[in-house]
Design a binder for these strands. Structure first.
Lengths: 264, 264
DNA sequence: TAGTGGTCTAGACCACTTC
DNA sequence: AAGTGGTCTAGACCACTAA
């Protein structure tokens, strides 16, 4: 037996997908549907909550229930790390990202804090340090206009960054060229990377920080950055609002029969 | 004002994280908490639903509410496509996956259907076909024991696969070596790939198919497979239960200043 | 102040599982 | 039959927004 609220939710979802309610359109008010005989207030509310969980609508008190705008996914390819962007030019990496994607840059779209902390487990493992070793953590919250889109925390070994402007706790991007430029100037040129990606629902804290509706998925990205000799110079953890990003990777199909030194 | 059901859910979540309720443990029955003064049945139920949406517990009628087992993330690296697995050996690709990860293979863990369909938009674009062109769709649902973990639909151009055993609608993997082997035997050796990844909440249909609690995140994977001359021979869309998989990619940091023919 | 969604209750009833 | 979670109602009340 499919519940009544499910049937109502499916009916509305179909109407939304059919375009009967376009992005930004108001859905019928809860009390209207109650009067129309769709069930009690709790039942209609349950249907609306399901639609919200499925990412189709957002509800807010005083306003009503509105069909969500779908922001186009920002595609993240590996050219966002192009050395030319942060080594040769004056651009800060993430500004280059904005320019490339045709979005305007505004000040205060990124805030950062730097501090010496006990490394989280994943960070100490990536750096090959004992559990609980101290590392520098550079945390930033990145916004698109008013709306936070993701937060990113980089972990550095103290001996790699002490004395550089990376550990200067000034808000804003880490100066010209960003973090990779600072490492480059300190003699650590980045060479290759490993990215690990998985999705989960946001914790209560993250929902608040990224201003997400409860239950929204986030994508967690673990990025390990190496120099040519294999030294890990940065390990970063990003938490991204899943609705805003897609990742893209291109690679050769490996062949262990002929390719004894396969990079992966 | 944080609602009563939220407070109860947070209290229980903390107890779960503290290990007071280990994996597999029974949470108090709804009616017990009602009697204990935690609120009405609906209120306690709302708290339990929240915990379920957060992936901490599963409820089922007749049984009760039980703390979820955390299955370790299966890491998907690009070696899962290793040519040696499907070209040289007898292994079907996904069986090789199981062997590599130390899991037993059982029959009927994959079902498949093959049919000639109108290409979905993403598939026609990937193949460079006009919208609505006909393609072969090979859809399979992959399970881990009883539990479905992901579904995967491959789209092929008719001229690439007609007359091969790929379009023979027999359940089970596409014979020895799987789909890539069939293409190889037909003269299309795969060479490189593009994978696009993003996360979203499951639709109602997917929740049912993958047996996920409502609101669970899924990861959608778009895979485009090319031969050496750039012909697209397969475009696949996968929908994965987010709690079961992580993706891993390694790559060189690009440098457009020296590397004019950058692959990405 | 009026209208919106959100919470909560008490109790009836349903669907499923186990005994 | 007994016990589990799930659904549904009718109505009261709360929190927030807009005019």
């Amino acid at each position: 037996m499919t519940p009544k609220w499910r049937e109502l939710a499916d009916k509305l979802a179909e109407q939304i997908k059919a375009g009967e309610y376009g992005p930004g359109a108001q859905l019928p008010h809860i009390r209207e549907l109650v009067d129309a005989g769709e069930g009690s207030k709790s039942t209609v509310h349950a249907a609306y909550k399901a639609l919200e969980a499925e990412g189709l609508v957002t509800s807010s008190r005083g306003h009503g229930t509105v069909v969500r705008q779908r922001v186009p996914l920002k595609r993240l390819g590996i050219d966002r790390y192009d050395k030319a962007k942060w080594r040769d030019g004056d651009e800060v990496a993430f500004i280059a990202d904005r320019v490339a994607s045709g979005r305007a840059y505004r000040r205060n779209e990124q805030t950062q804090t730097v501090s010496l902390v006990e490394a989280p487990l994943a960070a100490s493992e990536a750096h090959g340090l004992p559990a609980g070793a101290e590392v520098y953590a550079r945390a930033r919250l990145v916004k698109e206009g008013q709306q936070p889109t993701h937060c990113l925390t980089s972990y550095y070994r103290p001996e790699h960054v002490e004395g550089t402007r990376l550990v200067d706790p000034t808000p804003g991007p880490a100066g010209r060229g960003g973090g990779f430029r600072v490492l480059y100037d300190a003699g650590y040129e980045i060479d290759h990377m490993k990215e690990q990606i998985f999705a989960r629902t946001a914790t209560a804290d993250e929902s608040k920080l990224l201003q997400l509706p409860p239950g929204e998925p986030v994508v967690e990205l673990h990025r390990t950055t190496y120099t040519a000799d294999g030294t890990v110079v940065e390990f970063a953890i990003g938490v991204h609002a899943a609705s805003r990003f897609a990742w893209e990777y291109k690679f050769q199909v490996p062949d262990s029969a002929t390719d004894k030194e396969n990079p992966q």
